[in-house]
Simulated scan of single mutants.
Amino acid sequence: MKPRSVFGASLICSFLAMPALAQENPEIGQRQGQFNLIVHNFAVLGGMAQGRVDYDADLAQTAADNLFHITRHDQSRLWPEGTDSDSVEGTRALPAIWENLDDFVSKFGALQDAAEAVQAVAGDGLDALRPAVGALGGACQACHQTYRAEAG
């Protein structure tokens, strides 16, 4: 089976296996998918910045390019009211998102800016990458502290 066919089959299987929550509120599964892609690419960069993964300029640049584009995905339809952790199971999105949507959007804008800054330096060496990845992590954390429930 060709790699693209394997990917396609995996993607189809993952959609078939989605819980009823995603069927009732597909936006939850869609936004979680987007954030999973962010985590996937951030892990590459974070691993390099922390010295757990050898620095590879091409791999760093690819992950940073991915992050830039993922954070540019239109979020407007992914956050309908009633898809918070108090309203449905299977999400960690706190109701505070909808209570202070302007701040939430601002924090996502900071994530976009940080992703752009990482993209600009990812291939320029570890010394350039580390502070940009730190700022990206800070942008993630700023939103999580206010708008994401603890796991558990």
Rank of each mutant, 00 (worst) to 15 (best):
G46L: 03
A64E: 08
S85V: 09
F68C: 03
T71L: 12
G47Y: 02
M18H: 08
G134Q: 15
A57N: 05
V105I: 11
R148C: 07
V121C: 05
A49L: 06
P26Q: 03
R72Q: 15
H40F: 14
A139K: 06
E81P: 00
A139G: 06
L37S: 10
G152H: 11
S5D: 15
E24M: 10
D86E: 14
R92C: 01
D103K: 15
V53G: 03
G134V: 06
M48N: 02
L37E: 09
I28Q: 02
D86V: 08
Q112I: 10
L11Q: 07
A114F: 00
L129W: 05
R52D: 07
L78A: 10
T71P: 01
A115W: 00
G90C: 06
S85C: 04
Q75D: 07
I70E: 06
R130A: 13
Q145M: 13
Q50Y: 02
A115E: 00
A17L: 14
I97C: 01
N66P: 01
L126A: 11
P3S: 09
A151D: 00
D124K: 14
D127Y: 05
R130D: 07
L67D: 02
G123K: 05
F104T: 01
I28P: 01
D84S: 15
G47N: 06
C140E: 10
Q61S: 13
F15R: 12
D124I: 05
M18R: 14
F42E: 12
T62Q: 10
G47C: 03
V39I: 11
R4L: 12
R130K: 15
A142T: 11
E116L: 10
L59M: 06
A149T: 09
H40C: 02
F104K: 02
C140S: 11
V88K: 09
I12P: 00
F35D: 01
G46K: 11
A22R: 00
V39M: 10
L136A: 07
F104W: 13
G8T: 09
G134W: 01
A151S: 00
F7I: 15
L94T: 04
A139W: 03
Q141I: 03
C143A: 11
G51Y: 11
A114L: 05
P131C: 09
A57G: 06
P95W: 06
A96E: 12
N66M: 08
R148E: 02
D127A: 15
